[in-house]
Design a binder for these strands. Structure first.
Lengths: 362, 362
DNA sequence: TTGTACGCGTTATCAG
DNA sequence: CTGATAACGCGTACAA
């Protein structure tokens, strides 16, 4: 039961291989309804599928899209993978994935592998520090940056590097607004230690502008990976009049001193948010039972636990589906020969207001 | 600057294409050190990479491994993707991924697509209800089941379907032991509503045996997806003497009635555990502040939040790296022509004991 | 040790 | 509307 080839189909249908090929690629002004039917019958009966390698060799198209994730443990990446899968599926494409683990060398290797494997185009969620490799790659196949820009911000300069990202400036602004709106006098943006992605920089820059504009104190802190160190960082931030608020006895929602809600925290992404929660819990014993209630939490990235932790955390959610659509669409356009200037596509996200920044103290 | 072919390398190195090919595939007893060096120089200088499609057409090997995930939102899948990537990378393979979203039809389609795309073998984390499609696929390419067995448990019957999974029976036994050890008189296994995977069945079966063996009350509950319904389920389980425990004033760790710690909960996977936490929080108001303290939590799958929620949750952790190694190794063996009987590989996981099942009441 | 010649399965060109 | 034929780039018997 060897593999069935196009020639076999041709013989059984009483036509030539060329005609079968035309049938498979449904050429516009095609063939007799009769021959079409005959071929269809044979194809159906034999379950024939053209060999990808042969087709690819001839057409110089693999129907393969390479995707490189910086950190697949970040649920944003998972969601994006699923969304991209859906897009690819609809277009008859398959996804080849690679994970860089936030390592530039690993990312460069992944890009090289995917290219060697024949990817028609690359989608790269770059970890930074890899501008050269990516620009080089873009000369062999279209490259669409996902979420994160090059360090040099060269996306617009170089010819073929497109980028799709969220409207981070507006989202940062939205979160700052939420925090200020619920009474925060000081706001801290928490970023990931050791990771200097363009997103971090972009959000940090917007942040500085925004806090200055509304006249509250702002600070950017890179949260340590180590829980104890992170707890110490958080502790010193919450700091000052900690632990002397008195236990809340039985009924809660009382004694809402005006010092409450003064510190606003903003996690730059879901991973940092999780670290933040962990650090808060670790720091809790030293800060008193209700330390959590004296800070206002907000975060980027919408995950299940945002709804439940702290009674609901105000979130800047990115539109994963729309981003995936834009990324895939742009990649396809490039594959189809679009040689226009590099594009920068900003997909609007939205602020989801939850209890953590509610007007009346929690 | 067209693509450089093997013929170009041959010309520049002053040899024939055949010799270059031999160089690329480093044939054993090969060639003069001189010619080897000359070819190496040219290959290096031009950055030549053989065209995957042409090579694949000739060798009938794509160096592509297809992977189908049932639920990529499940962090177990992300971790597995990363581990599999590492394995593939080392063997010169690339991963083609697809996501079924726990839909049998979608899974069947994904398998078909990956096969059409030329995958040398398939790794399937099946969602169940798809035995036919998978068996059919296994006749075209090796299929290795990941974690979940066929509904019919046919893995050993059919010729080529291998399966790699954890030692679920032992892990269930371990968790039951932990719960009994900290004083639970009743244990409930929480499963995912609407998903009837083999893992759920397997763990549930072991569970029933185990609770019977140690003589405690056991129950299996499929947790509703809807938070309110789930909360009601949890509420009725915690049930009975709820809410009349008196608020714990200031100091805690007191009034540990002997009714404490009587109910043991075991989440069948990380997703269910998250739903459980959410349900617990939703049910809390009606159950009294410290309802969480009257139940003992355990769960399968080790994630970051297991360390932090409830002060640490006792976990049955699977050895993702070892599983990935076994899966990939088995796939490679099949690709390399191993026609031996189907294998069932059980990779041992381990119990991580945390505060949630500590002897002294939390 | 190295070169020659052929074929892998498909699509594109060109006649008819 | 259809068929014959020539590539696509590479690996591998076979011959030298």
């Amino acid at each position: 039961m060897a593999r069935v080839r196009i020639k076999d189909i041709a013989e059984q249908a009483g036509v030539s291989a060329a005609t079968v090929s035309r049938y498979l690629n449904n050429t516009p002004g095609a063939m007799t309804e009769d021959t079409r039917a005959r071929i269809a019958e044979v194809v159906e009966r034999t379950g024939y599928r053209p060999l990808a390698a042969a087709r690819s060799l001839r057409t110089d198209r693999s129907q393969l899209l390479g995707v490189v994730f910086a950190d697949i443990a970040n649920p944003y990446s998972s969601a994006m993978l699923e969304a991209l899968s859906r897009e690819a599926e609809g277009a008859g494409y398959s996804l080849m994935t690679a994970v860089s683990g936030n390592g530039p060398a690993s990312e460069a290797a992944a890009v090289e592998r995917l290219l060697s494997a024949g990817a028609d185009a690359l989608v790269v969620n770059t970890c930074g520090g890899n501008d050269e490799a990516l620009i080089e790659a873009s000369r062999k196949a279209p490259v669409v940056l996902l979420d994160r820009d090059l360090d040099g911000g060269l996306a617009r300069v170089d010819r073929k590097l497109d980028i799709v990202t969220s409207n981070n400036a507006e989202l940062v602004n939205g979160l700052v607004g939420e925090l200020v709106g619920c009474g925060c006098k000081k706001i801290v943006l928490l970023t990931q230690s050791g990771i200097a992605s363009s997103i971090r920089r972009e959000r940090a820059a917007s942040f500085s502008d925004d806090v200055a504009a509304v006249g509250v104190e702002g600070e950017v802190v890179a949260l340590e990976d180590d829980v104890q160190k992170a707890a110490a960082q958080i502790g010193s931030l919450v700091g000052g009049g900690a632990g002397c608020d008195g236990g809340n006895v039985g009924d809660k929602g009382r004694d809402d001193g005006e010092r409450r809600g003064e510190l606003g925290l903003m996690a730059v992404n879901g991973v940092v948010f999780l670290q933040l929660i962990e650090a808060l819990q670790a720091a809790n014993p030293g800060l008193g039972e209700d330390a959590e209630r004296r800070v206002r939490l907000t975060t980027f990235d919408e995950y299940a636990w945002n709804r439940m932790l702290m009674g609901g955390v105000t979130t800047a959610a990115q539109d994963v589906g729309a981003i995936a659509r834009a990324v895939f669409g742009q990649a396809m356009a490039r594959i189809d020969g679009d040689r226009g200037p590099a594009r920068r596509i900003e997909v609007p996200g939205r602020i989801i207001r939850r209890a953590s920044t509610a007007r009346r103290p929690v």
